[in-house]
Design a protein around this nucleic acid. Structure first.
Lengths: 201, 201
DNA sequence: ATTCTTTTATTGAACGTTCAATCAATAAAA
DNA sequence: TTTTATTGATTGAACGTTCAATAAAAGAAT
């Protein structure tokens, strides 16, 4: 049934099928045949569109990072005000966006995280993302904190966000996004309260 | 050169070699031959002592978890006082013990973390450890907080500890244990200060 | 409309590689 | 002589990639 213009459709199907397979059996047991069956196509098509299995895996990670970045950016565009609190809150909420915390995405994310330790191409993508989160947080904290303290606040909050993700991906019930957001926001409020004790209500 | 009593020696050598291999090339590219070469023995010996590759991997994870538990327990035995602050501080310090934060151990730990999502035997070990950290923290927080608040404090601190680990394992420079400890302790002090504002100095 | 040609999309068997596990053979110690 | 410890070639299974073959759509021509 080959019509023209299949390429973007197939690419999307295969990326989605990759996440499903990683969700089901993990990255280690994800074979091209299993991905192809999930997408309802043959194994050879993967090399045709992505140059090979590695190309598909990299494209899948790119998609996840791109979606995450967009979720954060969208919330920062629609802020109620431009206070540091609002910006940091938007970054937190974006990181726990619904498109990001579903089981398949979260497990795929963690699988790539581990894998990126030894695959240079994934490592680059991973570091770009990690630094983006950190520096976004840091520049907001610096609006009302001295530099070194802002750095530490950013590092601590970034670690908490990643840690909540990590723990969420491992629990059988999946990540409770509402609860995770609540914990991160509570931590943020503490940081703010400690720094403006006189400005209460 | 077979003497008697080689078993405990070989088991230790092979577990150590497993961590070295995972540090070098990752869990995915860690083969029995590579592990055996690291230990200076032949590949067949792994099946002889551990029943197969999976047995060795499980034994390696058990060793890491056991070392981590002991590092925490040792510090809790030698506390200056038995205040909640001291206990929680000891749990933090134990989790950033030098035996735990070296490159090979940290990378092996993260590799198993990801792998435990789809291997039931590793998952059990992982959950026992995660719950131990959480419930240890929780029971200390409850000594000066209402139950629900203590739970949230424990979840937040546990997430931060794991997040600092995670980010440390991924950076090329490795985990800066001193700095990570400092961030976790800062967060702890905020939790304490917020809850006893009248008892200052 | 119908036929022919070209282009695009897809298949799946075959190939070469890699891996974990096995086991008969070996050698040192007891 | 018996027991304990170890080797490494072999085996069979599984994997990613390749490529000749196939089929449907699109375009061209009558």
């Amino acid at each position: 049934m080959p019509k023209t213009g299949m390429e973007p459709i197939r690419r999307q199907q295969l990326i989605h099928a990759t996440m499903m397979s990683i969700d089901e059996v993990g990255l280690a047991d994800t074979t091209v045949i299993r991905i192809a069956r999930h997408a309802g196509v043959s194994a050879g098509i993967i090399s045709h569109y992505f140059g090979g299995k590695d190309g598909l895996l990299e494209a899948t990670m790119r998609q996840i990072l791109s979606d995450l970045g967009e979720a954060v950016a969208a919330r920062r565009r629609a802020l109620p005000d431009s206070s540091p609190h609002a910006h940091i809150g938007a970054i937190i909420d974006g990181n726990f966006d619904h498109s990001q915390v579903s089981g398949p995405v979260a497990k795929t994310w963690l699988a790539f995280w581990a894998s990126s330790m030894h695959k240079p191409q994934l490592q680059r993508l991973q570091q770009v993302n990690g630094r983006r989160l950190y520096s976004n947080l840091c520049s907001q904290f610096r609006r009302f904190m001295p530099r070194e303290q802002a750095r530490n606040a950013a590092r601590g909050l970034a670690a908490m966000i990643d840690g909540l993700w990590l723990r969420g991906a491992l629990t059988a019930e999946g990540l409770d996004a509402e609860h995770a957001r609540c914990l991160a926001h509570t931590h943020l409020k503490q940081l703010l309260a400690d720094h403006e004790p006189a400005t209460a209500s």
